[in-house]
Write a protein that binds this DNA or RNA. Structure first.
Lengths: 215, 215
DNA sequence: GTCTATAAACAGATAGAC
DNA sequence: GTCTATCTGTTTATAGAC
């Protein structure tokens, strides 16, 4: 059913294995994916997995590392100096919108978002690297923007939980996508549907910000 | 690490198998769980799985059915007639709070919530039954309450997405629990932490309702 | 209905040729 | 570095005794 997007241009067996594993882990989950299937998709043999990564677990970790690496290079971290409330508001909106479109519009994200979702659902070992290198900085930056808007303390529990609430909506709509589509009467989740969800999340964000400004 | 709660009082091999499978599927996922482990935990033999359920897949479906059955009997569906905005507001708050505590405070929910989370993450076949028998009615009821409060059309896209946004937060805090705890500096998610999350979600709910009332 | 024993396929890891 | 062949253990499913 998924459009058979070709794997990333193979620059060596090692990279091909990571690309193949990321796709299959994301589609079927870690336990359900055999090393043989990975090797076949990568155009190589099973033994190369042990050679390059020490085993299936090592390949999983390598996928998580590659995930963090690609996302970090894709998301240039802006300076995020002290901002006016209005500027922070625009930045936060843009960031949330970008994340929503990235998470929901998988074609752009390739095989990485399904992999992340699986790893999150399975509480995989790769999450530690992804957390420290990607999630924690992102969340911290969102909190800083949030605080610039509402005047709250950036690292207060209230701000942290509010940011999690917003990010959580994005993740939920991604994970429960099929169920949401069914309830909404959507045949599938295309550009229009992603737009509707994204707008809803941004509207929710504003509602939360307004409430936080007037406590 | 998890407190070794005894399985539900074994009333026959069939029930014991379902209880054991629900726990192991929830803890490790479907693919990572062997039929032998299930049979051992259930105090029976592997062959009984094929006998009673036709195979591992049949057992998974039986778990999903049992899940829906238990939740439906636990959640008596109130009449939900036409309500004043205030009454609807109280009911919606109570319902969201109950769901949050149920989803986050797993001991009360036993092995069912982890199973549901796994099934959701894996997009398992059991979800169809769970959706039609549990999620759809619940979501519909929430929408009705929401509409009674804001005056919107109960089955409008805006209301449906708003309800999903609220429910989604609960699911996210459950799924990403370990990550959230780490960022919050929580050693674990106990009663106090569940309370903090629940209060946050209810506060978010109010913010969304206020925004919906004044468009 | 329950169980033991076994079948047949598959898993991940590795030895060793090239 | 890459590959074939193989080892060892495990998987689900089933045959057949009780």
């Amino acid at each position: 059913m998924s459009t058979t997007v070709p794997l990333t241009a193979p620059e060596g067996t090692r990279a091909a294995l990571i690309a193949a594993a990321m796709r299959l882990f994301g589609q079927q989950g870690f336990a359900a994916t055999s090393t043989r299937a990975i090797a076949t998709l990568a155009g190589t043999n099973v033994a190369s997995i042990s050679y390059h990564f020490g085993g299936k677990d090592g390949l999983r970790q390598a996928c998580a590392d590659e995930f963090s690496r690609q996302i970090r290079s894709a998301m240039a971290t802006p300076p995020a100096h002290i901002l006016s409330a209005d500027a922070a508001h625009s930045q936060l909106h843009a960031a949330v919108r970008r994340m929503a479109e990235f998470m929901l519009g998988s074609p752009a994200a390739g095989d990485m978002v399904p992999f992340l979702i699986r790893e999150l659902g399975e509480n995989g070992p790769g999450l530690t690297a992804i957390y420290t290198e990607l999630m924690e900085p992102t969340h911290r930056r969102f909190c800083a923007l949030w605080a610039s808007i509402t005047g709250q303390a950036p690292e207060s529990d209230a701000v942290k939980l509010s940011v999690f609430s917003t990010i959580g909506q994005i993740f939920y709509f991604r994970m429960a996508g099929p169920l949401v589509a069914r309830r909404m009467g959507w045949a599938h989740i295309g550009a229009a549907e992603i737009d509707a969800i994204s707008i809803q999340i941004q509207s929710n964000l504003d509602a939360l910000l307004v409430a936080a400004e007037r406590p």
